[in-house]
């Protein structure tokens, strides 16, 4: 899956704050915070959020999740990709392909 080679980053248009084991995410669009669309991440979501650093690929993030939560590859892959898809849909993360993949036509592939 080419998705696995993509690199997610935190969007600059979100304010995040850890509280206990959870995270609060406030999207900021056109300089205005959308207080009707505040997100909270549970412990697992918070872990994935903290693992996203703009350098690790999706595949690497899945590997880290497998080790952290001792779950199988298939479950972790589905959970991480579902999570990232939702985050991308709400503009909370951005995704870019690995530079070396630019020529392979994956640039426009969507999570």
């Amino acid at each position: 899956m080419e998705i696995l080679k993509q690199i997610p980053s935190h969007s600059l248009s979100v304010v995040s704050r850890r509280t206990g084991d959870e995270y609060i995410l406030v999207p900021v669009t056109e300089n205005i915070a959308d207080m009707d669309s505040i997100f909270t991440l549970n412990e697992t979501g918070a872990f994935i959020w903290e693992t996203i650093d703009g350098r690790k690929t999706v595949e690497e993030i899945i590997h880290i999740v497998v080790n952290e939560f001792e779950i199988d590859d298939a479950t972790a892959t589905k959970d991480v990709i579902d999570f990232l898809s939702s985050m991308k849909k709400f503009l909370i993360i951005t995704v870019q392909p690995l530079p070396s993949d630019n020529s392979s036509g994956t640039k426009n592939e969507k999570l």
Partner: peptide, 8 residues
């Protein structure tokens, strides 16, 4: 209500 839920 607790945690992040209380905050939002």
């Amino acid at each position: 209500v607790y945690g992040a839920t209380a905050v939002i």
